[in-house]
Amino acid sequence: MDFILKIWRQQDSQAKGKFETYQVTGISPDCSFLEMLDILNNRLIDRFEKPICYDHDCREGICGSCGLYINGRPHGPDSAITTCQLHMRRFRDGDTIIVEPWRAKPFPVIKDLVVDRSAFDEIIMAGGYISVHTGSAPEANTIAVPKVKAEISMDAAACIGCGACVAACKNASAMLFVASKISQLAVLPQGIVEAKERVRKMVARMDELGFGNCTNTGACEAECPKGISLTHIARLNREYFAAKLL
């Protein structure tokens, strides 16, 4: 398969970036999107040109490292996958594919398609944890967790922090990310203890970092590779009101 790629190139965080056009030919339909970029990079290196920088790690959709904004959608045209799980057979031969980095003030571009997502780490550092000595593994069922609550927590914990929610949101809001990190702990007995302090601090940090405000548009939910639901944002709101008002 042959493609025309228009890719955002930016020397560093201070430089003014621009789109560069590349022709890639002879790509297998079974190639993943990142493998296709690897092939292009090898060809660029052979021509003594600078390869395109992009984030990646596990290449099996569980680490949250990769994240490209492809033809107007985070992680490309398919739903519930990460960029590394996207295959070239999803495109038509001869397609023009436009590849951009995540765009949000708290996610500055470091180089080309690589953005600094440490703003998410800062939100987690503000309170997205349980600060108790866990000691050695406790006896099973010492703390009873209802099945329903465990399921909610596990659904929220599926978040891999890739930032697609921020990238997709027209307001660059991080509410779905924060909501999943709140939900995964707030419904469990171990998490309830620090729930109020946690939500207060995490929301305050989110605001300080300059993310936009949630307008319940639902783009985050539609683009989340792990299918995290807006329900968690409603829970975040409830948790926040309870922490502030009760």
């Binding site: 107007g72 436009i98 003030k105 997709a168």
Partner: peptide, 14 residues
């Protein structure tokens, strides 16, 4: 919160 806009605006199902 998004000082640099996308070339292609998001068309996610919303």
């Amino acid at each position: 919160a998004r000082p640099v806009r996308y070339k292609i605006e998001n068309y996610s199902q919303t």
